[in-house]
Nucleic acid binder design. Structure first.
Length: 271
DNA sequence: CCCGGAACCTGAAGGC
DNA sequence: TGCCTTCAGGTTCCGG
């Protein structure tokens, strides 16, 4: 479900409520939540501690309890939701629940049980350790993007999904970014010209920032912590638009499969 | 080392 | 109605 804009939307919404609150309990209702880290370790790292800040790295959320406690990481994978509630939340898919002193609950609801909690204490996954550049950081320049793509023969849309190169882009925004940059998704990364790299760089920033400002994309599962859907769904120009006319040129939008995942593109606008 | 494909799950939607 | 297949926003593992 969530890509960088959705995770960032969740982070901002949660920050207003949970920073400064003490975690008085952490309960688990499904073992897959703690499959990477034993539940007692997760409870010890959070119960009794006050949330000092909440950060995002790629698609991971990080709860910080202070310098002497490792950051507490949450990955929502495909269907995870973090929902705030004042009262006990009744949900068939409730997998874990933080009790926040003086507020209520932060509920982890996850239909497919792919999401998980773990600590950034040195035992975190290789996937986390190898995360690439944050695309919305000042360090992510067109020059850096050029250095990354010139070494890669991977199709450019698949390249955008590689979390160890650029952290946070997922399957929806990879198609949207290629369309915005007018680049065909199956082009070899190294084949992009300097101008195309500049276009791709500005499209990455433009699409991610616009999606954040519209609070993410809801196709089915994504919800903000207050339960509201994201609003970028109406702004999608290519993802899910198979057989519909391109709104730029009217050509029928095509769907293809790359590395087992759907890609949408306009054969007229993209080169 | 790289690559593709399967696996991990549940549920919705479409075809017949 | 119901059965079957396909698909879903992500990552990890395994074999070649």
């Amino acid at each position: 479900m969530p890509e960088l804009p959705e995770v960032e939307t969740i982070r901002r919404s949660l920050a207003d409520v949970i920073v400064g609150k003490k975690v008085s309990d952490l309960e688990f209702f499904h073992p897959r939540v703690h499959r990477h880290t034993d539940p007692e370790t997760l409870q010890q790292a959070s119960i009794g501690n006050t949330i000092k800040s909440i950060d995002r790295r790629g698609k991971y959320l990080l709860l910080n309890f202070g310098d002497d406690v490792p950051p507490f990481a949450i990955h929502l994978r495909m269907s995870g939701q973090l929902l705030l509630s004042k009262e006990i939340l009744e949900s068939k898919h409730l997998r874990a629940r933080f009790t926040l002193q003086g507020y209520g609950f932060l509920n982890f609801v996850d239909i497919r049980t792919f999401g998980s909690f773990f600590l950034i204490d040195g035992n975190e996954s290789e996937g986390y350790k190898k995360l690439g550049i944050e695309p919305l950081s000042d360090d992510f320049t067109s020059e850096l993007l050029g250095q990354l793509v010139e070494k890669s023969s991977t199709p450019i849309k698949q390249f955008l999904l590689m979390q160890d190169r650029i952290a946070g882009i997922g399957n929806i925004y990879a198609s949207e970014i290629c369309f915005d940059a007018k680049i065909l998704p199956y082009r070899h990364s190294y084949s992009l010209s300097k101008i195309e790299i500049d276009d791709l760089h500005s499209s990455i920033l433009k699409i991610l920032n616009r999606a954040i400002s519209e609070m993410g994309t809801t196709l089915s599962d994504f919800r903000r912590p207050d339960g509201q859907p994201g609003e970028f769904s109406n702004s999608l120009k290519i993802y899910g638009h198979k057989d519909l006319p391109c709104e730029v040129c009217g050509t029928t939008i095509k769907r293809m499969v790359q590395h087992g995942r759907s890609t949408f593109f306009c054969p007229q606008c993209q080169h």
